[in-house]
Design a protein around this nucleic acid. Sequence first.
DNA 1: CATTTTAATGCAATTATGTTGCAAATATAA
DNA 2: TTATATTTGCAACATAATTGCATTAAAATG
Lengths: 145, 145
Amino acid sequence: MGNNTSRFEKLLVKNGLKRTVPRLQVLEILSGRDSATSQPYLEQVMGKDADRVTLYRVLQAFEEKGIIHKVLDQQGTANYAICSDGCSAHEHHDEHVHFNCDNCHKIYCLDTVKIPALKVPAGFKVAHLNLIATGLCASCSGKVN
Amino acid sequence: MGNNTSRFEKLLVKNGLKRTVPRLQVLEILSGRDSATSQPYLEQVMGKDADRVTLYRVLQAFEEKGIIHKVLDQQGTANYAICSDGCSAHEHHDEHVHFNCDNCHKIYCLDTVKIPALKVPAGFKVAHLNLIATGLCASCSGKVN
DNA sequence: CATTTTAATGCAATTATGTTGCAAATATAA
DNA sequence: TTATATTTGCAACATAATTGCATTAAAATG
């Protein structure tokens, strides 16, 4: 347990969630990574520490409260990343670009890149935008090709 | 069978695929819809006419040949739409925007809307872009809200 | 601090989803 | 019409996700 613990505990309490071991574990793992983390990876890392079902429910609860957000990769697998501070259950601000590296398969949240405005046909009302770019990330583009 | 049949038969032959009942059925269903069609929906409509496995394989073959393209919706479910004429096995041109209606859950391929160019951080190399907009489609935006 | 209340976990069972191998059937070529 | 190659459908298997419920743990209460 790092010194993040109390920060995470506050985060849980603030969202009306009890401060439990599996929840803190998930926050710990997600915060220690520079890219979104897949459900299968989380499952593997948690190992026998937590039941698969518990993990599903933890992730679902976090997503509902706006603590994490879900990105689907090209295969449709769910990946999770901790939301920036502006997020809440009421309003998600995850409309940044996600970058899916074809080589290392990490998913980066490019918080700094804004999705450009979009012209849609008459009648359509856009509520949210979800842009996934694929290609090579900064650390892979040097190595391969 | 509508009068599309011969057109679809040509399409199959052109792609080196045999002209079979389940394949023509899938093309018939997809072409009769104005939005992308989910795998579960196709399964339901085909009913006992075709085996689940056959459907998987038909869709896979079509995708490989560039006859249809796959879009994942927000739940990660696969949806399929017939490609515009420019597509082939060698080169897919499905980089248009997909619109996911929050009300009727249809997925529209907005062929006319181009994805704007994107500035990504140094080192990142973008190969493909995949933009999904959610909101209300033209026919729903009048009805609700 | 002991006790009550409420929420969360873990297990078992179930359901849904996707894959593989192979024999039978069907489409095309010869 | 026959031969060849592809495609289908079945069965079995594998994987992923969901539900109900008893047990456990956390916060609230007196």
